[in-house]
């Protein structure tokens, strides 16, 4: 039962409310994860801070250290943005694969990050591009590299009074030097069984694996490494579980297949 429902329309009021209600409250952005978890009784928040009207947290702008994406920007807005497609191709592919048109209209980048699902389709793309997450509280703000942000399924480094404000993504990731591949059980409306993000800089290949460990994990390899070394590094980086979507062995095999087909396309 929600005791308190606050519709918040500016950032300052949000930071104030977050410092006041802390762990008792949940932030409602798109609702595509939160409302499902409320309905299935996985959570029962006392206070909801609804932020869909905070316009200053929406949008995509070119900054000096990369592209700044507001946490409340919807997956649809990201998909339709020309700068994202040109400079952040893995993220374009990631949001393209999310749920369905309705879910992409509702869901937000900040929500996908803060929800910290090991299968979040934006996370592997952000990892291979070296994105930073800007966290804000009433008293301070800080930038956290995306590979230091996640601590486990649903767990992050965020303090109770902090919010995800925006994401800063370095530019220069196009179709030729980066990408994201997802394997789901059907094309639309499926949560990834596993996914692989990749980027290539000089001879160094960065791979990120979704749905294959408690958090999205990363491996770095040389582009010309042997097949045996590649397999070893990939399997070292992941620790998949068996669940209702797939078994451990299946996940390992599909990840290896995705990596192999990506390497073939690259060479």
């Amino acid at each position: 039962m929600i005791k308190r429902f606050l519709n918040i329309s500016d950032l300052e009021s949000l930071l104030k409310a977050k410092s006041e209600y802390g762990s008792k409250c949940k932030i409602l952005a798109g609702g595509t994860d939160l409302v499902v978890r409320m309905k299935t009784d996985m959570i029962d928040p006392d206070t909801i801070l609804s932020i869909r009207n905070i316009d200053e947290m929406k949008g995509i702008i070119k900054g000096k250290d990369g592209t700044v994406i507001g946490a409340l920007t919807s997956h649809t807005s990201i998909e339709e943005n020309a700068l994202i497609r040109k400079q952040h191709y893995p993220l374009y592919q990631g949001v393209y694969e999310i749920g369905s048109p309705q879910i992409r209209n509702m869901g937000t980048l900040g929500g996908n990050i803060a929800n910290a699902s090991p299968s979040g389709d934006t996370i592997a793309p952000l990892m291979v591009m070296g994105a930073k997450i800007k966290l804000m509280s009433r008293s301070k703000e800080r930038l956290v590299p995306v590979d230091e942000f996640f601590k486990g399924p649903g767990k992050t480094v965020m303090a109770d009074d902090e919010i995800v404000h925006s994401v800063i993504v370095p530019a220069g990731f196009n179709k030729k030097n980066s990408g994201f591949i997802k394997a789901g059980l059907r094309k639309a409306l499926s949560i990834a069984v596993v996914s692989v993000g990749w980027s290539l800089k000089d001879d160094k290949l960065t791979l990120a694996f979704g749905g294959a460990a408690p958090i999205v994990t990363v491996a770095e390899i040389r582009k010309d490494c042997s097949a045996a070394e590649l397999k070893k590094k990939v399997l070292n980086a992941i620790s998949p579980i068996s669940d209702l979507r797939a078994s451990k062995g299946y996940r390992e095999q599909v990840i290896l297949n995705l990596v192999n087909s990506m390497m073939e396309a690259l060479n």
């Binding site: 929600i2 609702g31 595509t32 409302v35 909801i48 649809t76 309705q102 209209n105 509702m106």
Partner: peptide, 12 residues
């Protein structure tokens, strides 16, 4: 924009 109304809290 289209949404699935089962996931929208009316209060929001």
């Amino acid at each position: 924009e289209t949404v699935t109304s089962c996931l929208v809290l009316a209060a929001s």
